[in-house]
Simulated assay, not measured.
Amino acid sequence: MILYFSGTGNSEYAAKRISSIIDDEAVSLFERLRDNDFSEINSERPWIIAAPTYAWRIPRILQSWLEKTRLSGNKNIYFVMTCGGNISNAGKYLEKLCAGKSLNYMGCMEIVMPENYIALFSTPSQEKASEIIRQAEETIDKAASIIKKGRTFPQHPLTLMDKLNSGIINDIFYPIFVHAKKFYATDACISCGICTNVCPTANIRLENGKPVWSKNCTHCMACISRCPKEAIEYGKHSIGLPRYTFPE
């Protein structure tokens, strides 16, 4: 079974492409994460977790959910991590997570996809995004082939920077950057409520027709990227930048 978490569509695409190749079910974790649903899930086929990379590791919201949820049946588990750059030493922490759940860690595959982290970086043009997606499809297909054969994902040599990125930098990054303080809506807002519906932590509510953010933000960028009027900004950084969601 393929379980995926996706804010702007990259990981959803990877999950569904793998699903079509290996003929296995792809299930969104959106509602389970939003509802704090930790009820047991069973699969007789290997587990595949498709997720974005947040500061060189899986999102903490997903890490917490996996720690609390029993995955019964098959003991093998793969991780497919979409990213704008690289996943550094994410595998170390995934292997530890799996050991704590008595699951057989089968490795993690890095899938470079279009950058969506508009809070800090620039998002690509449509033309550039399409080029990156085309290149990513070969890696996604390779991951699916390895899973189909029951082999482990290949692991690459790690640098000191990789270890620092997924370790101390990740620890520092979350408390400093992962909050909703800089989100705001401009006068272009039409009070459609899409931002409230796409938030996986139910962190957004409408007050007087405008979105208001609480303190439980995971920085998935779903709200700012999926706003139909581009009425949501993140401080001054996002102003004028194209929004990115995986093309339909």
Rank of each mutant, 00 (worst) to 15 (best):
S72R: 04
F5G: 02
R57M: 05
F183H: 06
E110C: 13
M161K: 15
L29F: 04
A99H: 11
R151M: 10
S88E: 05
A222M: 04
Y93R: 06
Y54T: 09
C227W: 03
L241D: 03
M221D: 10
A185N: 07
A99D: 13
K101W: 02
K16H: 10
G193S: 11
G209M: 06
K149G: 00
A136K: 04
Y93I: 06
I21H: 00
S20W: 00
S11H: 04
K236D: 13
Y174T: 12
E67N: 08
M221N: 12
N74G: 07
L29M: 14
E233V: 07
Q135K: 15
T8F: 05
L120K: 10
L3K: 01
Y234M: 04
L120Y: 05
I49L: 12
A231I: 12
K182E: 12
R243D: 03
F173K: 08
A136E: 03
Q63R: 14
E230N: 15
S28I: 07
N216S: 11
A119M: 14
I204G: 06
G85W: 12
Y13E: 13
I172F: 12
D141L: 01
E248S: 13
I204V: 14
G84C: 04
T8E: 05
S43N: 08
R70E: 15
I22M: 10
M113L: 10
N104F: 08
R45L: 13
N86A: 12
E40C: 04
W56T: 05
